[in-house]
Amino acid sequence: MTGRTITFEIFRCDPQHPNDSARMQTFELTEAPGMTVFIALNQLRKEQDRSLQFDFVCRAGVCGSCAMVINGMPTLACKTLTSQFKSGKIKLMPLPGFELIGDLSVNTGKFMRSLSERLQGWLVPAGAERSFDAVEATMEPQTAEMIYESERCIECGCCVSACATAQMRDTFIGAVGLNKIARFTLDERDGRGPDDFYHVLGGDDGVFGCMTLLGCADACPKGLNLQMQISYLRRKLALNPDRII
């Protein structure tokens, strides 16, 4: 399949330009072996249009910078091989649901920071901080693994873009937020339990706003089991035997 010509249809818009409006622009490129959308976009920028905007940092699928909608699926552009699209047509759109910086570049960073501030997405120690001179507190190896499992999220935003609920309701914390909370409720070093997150988690912005569309789980480039994380929280909050419904 190498050597074929691929057609890119790319969303263009510069919101800072007073009279620029959104449009789709078509580019053509000869495919090289092992070409990723990352390689292709850089080549396009260098050879065809120096104003094309997009974000790549690690180009290895670990930093979460390069998420965009590729042929209808939000995913990481750096690890998407062009050869996987048999038609040779690739349509690139910026992630919906985020502030547009320009073309394919969106401000996921700002979104994630404010989400973190809103959810208090950091460890709130259960007790006083232990001296770092002393031997560390123990933790069950399995607990550590479970925490890491949800901590693998790279805040790329694919789950938010794939979620129709998040699009319809700005305040919905989305799978990324739910997963973040699940991560801290799993962590015994954290003093908070699900109840402490109830004000956001227990409402329509939280787990009860989720309609189990599972776009999040289908899109997550890290393959996080978001469905299980969310259903865990839902059970925990709705069916907790300590509470009478």
């Binding site: 003093g191 402490d196 109830y198 004000h199 227990g202 939280g206 009860f208 706003g209 709705a238 509470r243």
Partner: peptide, 12 residues
């Protein structure tokens, strides 16, 4: 830590 507000159970 105790929950600061009485949780609103309506959504659940």
């Amino acid at each position: 830590m105790q929950p600061s507000v009485q949780p609103d159970r309506r959504a659940a």
